[in-house]
Amino acid sequence: MMTLEQIRQRNKAENAAAQRLQAAGYRLEGWDPRTGQRIAAQITGENTNDERRTFYAFPTWQDAAAALLG
């Protein structure tokens, strides 16, 4: 069981990772209740005929930031 301080630290790290992803141009689509994964999207050529959407699923935003941002 996590202590209150551990939960705070985890939430702070998750929020920081989510902000880094948004700053890099990814859209945070939320959480999929069927899989328990967080969904991030990368959209190129938005609102054009060449629009492309790529979706990524990760267990946490920290994992997403590590994989997508390096």
Score class of each variant (00 low, 15 high):
Leu4Cys: 06
Leu4Ala: 11
Glu5Pro: 01
Gln6Leu: 00
Ile7Glu: 12
Arg8Val: 05
Arg10Gly: 00
Arg10Asn: 05
Asn11Ser: 07
Asn11Lys: 12
Glu14Pro: 02
Glu14Asn: 12
Glu14Gly: 02
Glu14Lys: 01
Ala17Leu: 07
Ala18Leu: 09
Gln19Asp: 15
Arg20Thr: 08
Arg20Leu: 05
Ala24Trp: 14
Gly25Lys: 05
Arg27Glu: 13
Leu28Gln: 10
Glu29Gln: 12
Gly30His: 10
Trp31Val: 07
Asp32His: 12
Arg34Ile: 04
Thr35Asn: 06
Gly36Lys: 10
Gly36Arg: 11
Gln37Ala: 03
Gln37Asn: 14
Arg38Thr: 03
Ile39Ser: 01
Ile39Val: 15
Ile43Thr: 10
Thr44Pro: 03
Asn47Lys: 07
Asn47Phe: 13
Thr48Trp: 06
Thr48Lys: 03
Asn49Cys: 00
Glu51Tyr: 01
Arg52Val: 09
Arg53Ile: 10
Arg53Val: 13
Thr54Ala: 03
Thr54Met: 05
Thr54Cys: 04
Phe55Glu: 14
Phe55Ser: 08
Phe58Asn: 12
Phe58Thr: 14
Pro59Lys: 12
Pro59Phe: 02
Pro59Val: 01
Asp63Ser: 10
Ala65Gln: 05
Ala66Lys: 12
Ala66Ile: 08
Ala67Trp: 11
Leu68Met: 09
Gly70Val: 03
Gly70Ser: 04
